[in-house]
Amino acid sequence: MAGSVMASNEAAESRLKSSVDQVVAIAKASKDRPSLIAKVQPVLEKILDFQIMTRRAVGPGWRQFTPQQQKEATSLFTTLILRTYTAKFTPGEYPDVIYKSSSSQAPGRVEIPTTAQYKGSRYDVVYRMEDKEGWLITDVMIEGVSLVANYRSQFDSEFKQGGVNAVLQALQRSVAESK
């Protein structure tokens, strides 16, 4: 048991490290921001699990979405997450990431705490990964703030006000405004 946990921790860690290394390599090589974001995007798409992130961010209200609405919400939320992620990317600047020892809360789940030194500041970043036919990131906590929980609190207030449509409209508005 202990052995399998160790093995899954290692598998998740190596997956995360290779993705971070790819992003760093791209940031080093890129000359301008648009090309940097264009190149980083596919890497992020491979390592982040957008379906799960969207569903958990929406929370229990998700069941009231029709399949079509779920698809739309996932696609809009994916755009927002990618924007959130790439907002701070600057060509030539890249984080110095230190990995700390990971822990497993449940089978198929691993949390990897890291420290990222970026543009003169130090951030505690915890990656939450889950084994879904390969290890994928399902949440990121920066300085204790979980991305999924942060969006959940926002979706909750929209959902309370106007149900599924309010959530979708808010997503559309946010995607349009944050361009």
Partner: peptide, 28 residues
Amino acid sequence: PAIPAPITVKKPAKEHSSHKTVQSPSST
């Protein structure tokens, strides 16, 4: 399954469905 097929093509079964009553977020 909380997510119907079109969206979760890649990763369906393993994930448990989340909540049973989903009238509103307050039933979380």
